[in-house]
Amino acid sequence: MKILVTGAAGFIGMHTAQRLLERGDEVVGVDNLNDYYEVSLKEARLARLAAYPNFRFVRLDIADSQGMQELFAAEGFQRVVHLAAQAGVRYSLANPHAYAQSNLVGFVNVLEGCRHAQVEHLVYASSSSVYGGNRKMPFSEHDAVDHPVSLYAATKKSNELMAHTYSHLFGLPTTGLRFFTVYGPWGRPDMALFLFTRAILEGRPIDVFNHGKMQRDFTYIDDIVEGVVRVLDQPARASESFDGLAPDPACSNVPYRLFNIGNDQPVDLLAFIEALEGALGQVANKRFLPLQDGDVPATWADTALLGQAVGFAPKTSVQDGVGQFVRWYRDYYR
């Protein structure tokens, strides 16, 4: 198939594109290579993809409406994996306009491109952050998500609503994937594992928020990619059991779906740090701080729907995943 992967220079984007290329798909990768974090890391990821003859890169901002329209008109994509976004919860507190441009305007451009090009299936990244103020665990797609606690979360919830509108109006099959704390080799420098590793190796203290009373459903990158590809291969269909008198947020009477992709095994933050200390052979100097604005104390993915739909659920342990990251980090940064 000919597949568009937006955010191809990103962490999840590179791994997803590589998986598709290895199985023989033609992949066009789009990214604007912004400087939210070190551009050299993004360029190194793209260099890995450039080794594949069936890969082509287009430098383009998804918020560029004209550019996106021309791209879709010229390429004739069969399917789209939309992973480009302005990421980060805390960054949204100080830079809200970046989220409006990338996550809202950019997503409309992707939807419009898919609509006019009659794309067979759009798979897009949502986030566990949409669960916001929810406290019932584990987080289920059947639960309402009407209480976001960050602008980032609000834009991801908006993406789900926008996708449903296009599924309803134009019959566009859309599937939203709520990712839970993704980590692994080639990860983002603004994520906890990367920050912790760099600080420990440099002899600096690490910031442990909510005084360490945090749980996260850490999900290894290979498991995320496996879920994305399996979902991509099964375009969304309308649910025969959908009841408009008691609507289920997880499905619809149009070709629209939502899935959690998480490990379904929440891990205490201090246990995660302990796994990192073991992989590094060094003990961290911990600086305990209050919970940050926009953050939540715990996440936990119910992955039953994903398992039923595609016969897969993430399973990589934190010890294995953290070990893989540390090996990559030492090699990449020498």
Score class of each variant (00 low, 15 high):
H116K: 15
H147I: 06
N109M: 04
Y91M: 10
G113N: 11
R90H: 02
Q101P: 01
G88A: 08
G106N: 11
L104G: 02
G88H: 05
N109S: 04
E120T: 01
S140E: 05
R115N: 04
F139D: 08
V89M: 08
R79P: 03
R115H: 06
L122S: 08
D146Y: 03
A117C: 12
V80M: 10
A85R: 13
P148F: 00
G132V: 10
V80L: 07
S150L: 07
G76L: 15
Q101G: 05
A144N: 03
R115T: 01
H142V: 14
D143V: 03
S140R: 14
G67Q: 13
Q78C: 05
G113C: 09
L83N: 04
Y124V: 04
V145W: 00
G67T: 11
A84S: 13
A85W: 03
A144K: 00
S102R: 13
V89N: 09
P96H: 02
V110A: 12
S126V: 04
V105G: 07
L111E: 03
G76R: 02
V130Q: 08
V119H: 08
G133F: 13
D143H: 11
V123A: 06
N109G: 07
A87K: 13
N95T: 12
G133N: 15
C114A: 09
Q101H: 00
A98S: 06
V89H: 02
C114V: 03
H121W: 08
A117Q: 14
Y99I: 02
A100W: 00
L93M: 11
L122N: 09
L71A: 09
V130A: 10
E141S: 12
V123P: 05
Q86H: 10
A94H: 07
S150K: 07
A73R: 15
V130Y: 03
L122C: 06
Q118V: 04
S127W: 14
G132Q: 14
A87R: 13
D146E: 12
R79Q: 15
V145L: 08
A73Y: 13
S150Y: 00
V105M: 06
E112V: 02
A100F: 00
G76P: 10
S127Y: 13
V110T: 12
A74P: 03
V110Y: 00
F77Y: 15
A74W: 12
A84Q: 07
V89A: 09
V119I: 07
A84P: 09
G76F: 14
G88P: 12
V108Q: 10
G113V: 06
S102D: 10
H121S: 07
G88I: 08
V108T: 01
A117N: 11
P148M: 13
A85D: 09
A144M: 13
L71P: 01
V119K: 07
S128T: 02
S126F: 07
A84Y: 05
